[in-house]
């Protein structure tokens, strides 16, 4: 299981990344994260919705109600242009962290 702190820190890029693939609604996002992480990262509703609403306030995503036949109305979220830019920025940041970590893993322990 991935730690709570790490999960919390990676919320924004993960949501934006999933929404770049296509629009989605709350429950589907939770399911997707579980799928992508092979069950190692589990999000609860209590975590997701406040973040979604915060991202919407920051205009990184926008939402709309979709009425479909044979199912209940669902609130779908779409990524905005600003969101895409933010995702690129996050990508860079995380890549840098990743490369630093790779370096760190490579350092041999001193005797």
């Amino acid at each position: 299981m991935i730690s709570k702190n790490l999960t919390a820190a990676s919320t924004k890029p993960i949501i934006l990344g999933i929404l770049r693939q296509g629009s989605s609604y709350g429950y589907l996002i939770i399911k997707k994260i579980k799928e992508l992480s092979g069950g190692k990262m589990e999000w609860s509703d209590g975590m997701l919705y406040p973040v979604l609403h915060r991202l919407e306030k920051e205009e990184l995503i926008r939402s709309e109600w979709v009425m479909a036949e044979n199912s209940r109305p669902r609130k779908y979220y779409h990524i905005t242009e600003a969101g895409k830019r933010e995702l690129n920025y996050e990508h860079e940041q995380w890549s840098q962290v990743n490369s630093i970590l790779n370096e760190v893993w490579g350092i041999k322990p001193s005797r």
């Binding site: 609604y25 709350g26 429950y27 509703d45 919705y49 609403h53 109600w65 209940r72 109305p73 669902r74 609130k75």
Partner: peptide, 8 residues
């Protein structure tokens, strides 16, 4: 938020 949360 009710509709969305309770729906999901």
């Amino acid at each position: 938020y009710w509709d969305e949360l309770l729906g999901d």
